[in-house]
Structures are given as structure tokens and as C-alpha cells.
């Protein structure tokens, strides 16, 4: 479980905080979706969790342990984060790339004994077996995202954080990825997923947290957070919410301006 308690992050002393007293939890066994407009503080929260931005106030707890008390390697053994951006200037083979997920366990010049087996499990789980000998700069968008998740799974952490994992993916790859993430959560992981695709996450997440200007505006099951009034106020755009006839999931439709 990941718990954010009154977390505040400031980029500059005098400006409004990027994250302003945000509190919510991400429970084991389900997907928690972190949504909100551009600049609402979603990625800043991920960076704060990574230790890349210091907290001005509040704390982040991971299974009860305070984030700030953990060494970076220890953090990486507990939480696997797939950041929004990653570079492939110097491409690796997929098998080498996934093996980097074992970095948190490396000691000195050698790896740890469980490395090969952990990589094999991660590869099987993310179904990227067929890609092992491909280069990371030759993968399609969908393949690359799955390979990145395989790398995260090789970390064998109990918690998984994904920052906009479905950007640039077509419908089939997007759905396949979400099905994979959902099954990982169903297997017991705590999954925190940052996303712009409200309709999509409303079908997979047990819980949605809506951020606006660094504050939590709504927090609960999709049926509660997908509220036309709240979303209109946060996104500053006319919105209607209907219910999908087939799945029963709430569906958001932004209206044309007249």
C-alpha cells in the first residue's frame, strides 16, 4: 500500500505549490488511477515518490514505512516505477533491458542469484518472450510499454506505479496493456496509474483520485469521481456523463462549445 499524507511539493519558494496537501491511498490488489488536467500535479507526485522532488510538507508511506527513511535501492526493491519518459539513445536488447530491473539487487561486481529466474518470470508475465532479441529502439509503442512493464516486474516489488502508460497506443494495445495491469493488481500488487484517459481507467480502476491545481478534488470509486459537475469544474469544459450500456461503466463526453 502507498499512502500519501498531506503531501506538499513546491518548485519555487514563492509560487503556489505544485502539490498542495494531497492525501490518498493506493491499496493492494487494485488499480488506483490518478487523473486530472495538465499541470494538476500528477507527475510531480510520481517524482516526489521517486525522491526526485523533496516534500515541503507531509509524508509518503509505503506499507507503513516512510519513503524519506529509505535508501534509493531499498525503495526500488519495494516500488517499481515506470516513468513517463525514458530514453533509448543507446539501445539495449530487450533481454538486457529487462535485466536492468534487477539493478536494485546488484551487489558490487556481480548480480544476485535470483536474477535469471526473476527476469524469466517478468518476461512471461508481461508476455514479451518473442521480443527478447529485439533492440529497444526497434519496438512499436505497444511493445515498448510492455517491455518497460516487464522491466518493472523484474524488480519484484509489491507496488507498481505507471505514469501515463497508454500514451500513443492504439485501442488494442491500450486495452491489452490495461488488462495486463489489471491482472497484476488482481494478483495482489498495489498499482498507481497516472492517466489522462478517464473513460479507460474508469473501467479498470477500483478507485480514482482527481487532482486539480495540486489538490485532491475527488477520491473514490469511478462511479463517484466521474461526476459531470466536479469534472466540469476541474477541467473547465462542459461535460456530460452517461453510462455505457454494455459494461455499465461511466462514460465521459466533452461537449462542443457553441
Amino acid at each position: 500500500m502507498i499512502a500519501f499524507e498531506r503531501v506538499t511539493v513546491r518548485y519555487r519558494a514563492r509560487e503556489a505549490p505544485a502539490v498542495d496537501g494531497a492525501s490518498f491511498t493506493c491499496a493492494n490488489g487494485e488499480i488506483t488511477a490518478l487523473v486530472g488536467p495538465n499541470g494538476s500535479g500528477k507527475s510531480t507526485l510520481v517524482r516526489a515518490l521517486l525522491g526526485r522532488e523533496p516534500l515541503a510538507a507531509g509524508r509518503i508511506l509505503m506499507d507503513g514505512t516512510e519513503r524519506a527513511s529509505l535508501e534509493q535501492l531499498e525503495f526500488a526493491r519495494r516500488v517499481a516505477v515506470v516513468p513517463q519518459r525514458e530514453e533509448t539513445v543507446f539501445p539495449l536488447l530487450v533481454r538486457e533491458y529487462v535485466a536492468l530491473g534487477r539493478y536494485p539487487y546488484s551487489r558490487g561486481l556481480t548480480g544476485s542469484p535470483g536474477d535469471a529466474a526473476a527476469v524469466e518470470r517478468a518476461v512471461a508475465r508481461a508476455e514479451v518472450d518473442a521480443l527478447l532479441d529485439r533492440r529497444t529502439d526497434e519496438l512499436s509503442g505497444g511493445e515498448w510499454q510492455r517491455v518497460r512493464i516487464a522491466r518493472a516486474l523484474a524488480q519484484e516489488a509489491g507496488m507498481l506505479v505507471l505514469d501515463e502508460p497508454t500514451t500513443f497506443l492504439d485501442i488494442a494495445h491500450e486495452m491489452a496493456l490495461l488488462e495486463l495491469v489489471h491482472s497484476l493488481a488482481a494478483g495482489g500488487m498495489a498499482v498507481l496509474m497516472v492517466s489522462h484517459q478517464l473513460n479507460l481507467v474508469a473501467r479498470f480502476a477500483a478507485r480514482m483520485v482527481l487532482l486539480s491545481r495540486g489538490k485532491v478534488m475527488a477520491d473514490g470509486p469511478p462511479s463517484k469521481v466521474m461526476d459531470a459537475g466536479t469534472l466540469e469544474a476541474v477541467y473547465d469544459w462542459p461535460i456530460v456523463i452517461s453510462r455505457d450500456a454494455a459494461s455499465g461503466a461511466p462514460v465521459l463526453l466533452p461537449l462542443r462549445k457553441r
Partner: peptide, 14 residues
């Protein structure tokens, strides 16, 4: 190797 992936990815790997 890890830093070559970018700073956020490197931090994510510890």
C-alpha cells in the same frame, strides 16, 4: 547503464 535510460528511470531503479 541505468543512468543512460534517463534520470527518472534511473531513480526508479534505485
Amino acid at each position: 547503464d541505468v543512468l543512460a535510460l534517463g534520470e527518472d528511470a534511473a531513480a526508479a531503479l534505485g
